[in-house]
C-alpha cells in the first residue's frame, strides 16, 4: 500500500484537479508526487510491484497527462503518455481498466493529428487494445479523432469545422485551435491550385473566417494578391514550369549501363 504521505498528496492533487482553478496548484503537487513515486520505485514499475500501487501510480500519471493538456504543455503530455503506455499495454491483463484510458488515448491521437504526424497516428490506432474492434471504434473518445482524420484525408474540411464543438471531452478543445490552423493552411494550398480568382466574401466562408479583415491579413501572409476594387483574391498563376531535360543524370545513367554491359560481355 502506498505510504500515508503519498496518499495524502494524491488526495490533495485530486482535489486541486477537480477544482476549477486548481491548475497552478497541481504543478508543485505533481512534481512532489513524482519524486515520491520514484523513491518508492513506482515511477518505473517492475514485475514485483503490487497491484494497488500500480493503480495508484496510474491515476497520478493520468491526472498529470490531463493537467499537461489543460496547461497546454504538449511535451509534458508526451512524457506522461509514454509512462502510461506501460500500464495500458504491459499490465493490461493485470489491472482493472481505467475510465480515463480512452480519453487519454483519444487525446494522443488528436495531438498526433494536429502535429500532422499521420504515420504515427495510424501506428497508434493499430496498436489500440482490441478486445473487439467495433467497441474501440465506437468509443466516442476514439471515434472523434478517427473521423477527423478521415475527413481531413478526403478533404471534407467543413465536417471537421462543424465537429469542433462536438469534442467528447473538455480537453479536446485545447487542440481545436491548432487543428483549425492546420485546416486553414490545407484549404489555402488547395485554393491556390484550384482557383484562378475568388471573391473575398466566398474566400471568407471557405476559410471559415467571419470578417473580411481576417481574410485580408491571411491573404497577405500567404502572399495572395487582393483586388480591393472588385473584392476578389487573385491567385498568382504559376506559369508552366519548363521541364528541363536532366542531361547530367541521363549521361551518368548511360555511362553506368555501358560500364555494366562491358562487364557482362
Amino acid at each position: 500500500m502506498p505510504s500515508a504521505q503519498l496518499t495524502a498528496l494524491h488526495n490533495e492533487l485530486k482535489r486541486a484537479f477537480d477544482s476549477p482553478a486548481g491548475e497552478q496548484k497541481c504543478a508543485p503537487l505533481l512534481a512532489q508526487l513524482k519524486v515520491r513515486l520514484a523513491e518508492a520505485g513506482l515511477l518505473l514499475p517492475d514485475r514485483n510491484a503490487k497491484l494497488e500501487d500500480l493503480v495508484f501510480t496510474r491515476e497520478i500519471l493520468e491526472i498529470g497527462a490531463f493537467w499537461s493538456i489543460r496547461t497546454r504543455n504538449v511535451p509534458s503530455f508526451d512524457r506522461y503518455f509514454s509512462q502510461l503506455q506501460t500500464y495500458y499495454t504491459d499490465y493490461r491483463s493485470l489491472l482493472p481498466p481505467s475510465p480515463r484510458e480512452f480519453p487519454i488515448l483519444g487525446l494522443n491521437l488528436i495531438r498526433l493529428l494536429t502535429q500532422n504526424r499521420i504515420a504515427d497516428f495510424h501506428t497508434m490506432l493499430e496498436s489500440l487494445p482490441q478486445r473487439n474492434t467495433d467497441e474501440v471504434y465506437e468509443n466516442p473518445y476514439i471515434k472523434h479523432p478517427v473521423n477527423v482524420e478521415r475527413w481531413l484525408m478526403e478533404g471534407s474540411y467543413s465536417k471537421v469545422w462543424n465537429a469542433r464543438e462536438e469534442a467528447p471531452a473538455e480537453e479536446y478543445k485545447f487542440f481545436v485551435d491548432s487543428l483549425m490552423g492546420t485546416i486553414r493552411n490545407e484549404i489555402a494550398s488547395c485554393e491556390e491550385s484550384a482557383y484562378d480568382s475568388l471573391p473575398l466574401k466566398d474566400a471568407a466562408t471557405l476559410l471559415f473566417f467571419t470578417n473580411k479583415s481576417d481574410v485580408v491579413t491571411f491573404s497577405q501572409q500567404r502572399g495572395w494578391q487582393v483586388d480591393f476594387v472588385s473584392e476578389t483574391i487573385n491567385f498568382a498563376t504559376k506559369g508552366e514550369e519548363k521541364i528541363e531535360i536532366p542531361k547530367q543524370k541521363l549521361i551518368a545513367a548511360n555511362l553506368k549501363y555501358a560500364r555494366e554491359l562491358e562487364q557482362i560481355v
Binding site: 478526403e154 478533404g155 471534407s156 474540411y157 467543413s158 490545407e186 484549404i187 494550398s189 488547395c190 485554393e191 491556390e192 491550385s193 484550384a194 482557383y195 471557405l206
Partner: peptide, 8 residues
C-alpha cells in the same frame, strides 16, 4: 473542398 484537394 474535395475537388480542390484532388486538384492540389
Amino acid at each position: 473542398y474535395i475537388v480542390g484537394k484532388a486538384i492540389r
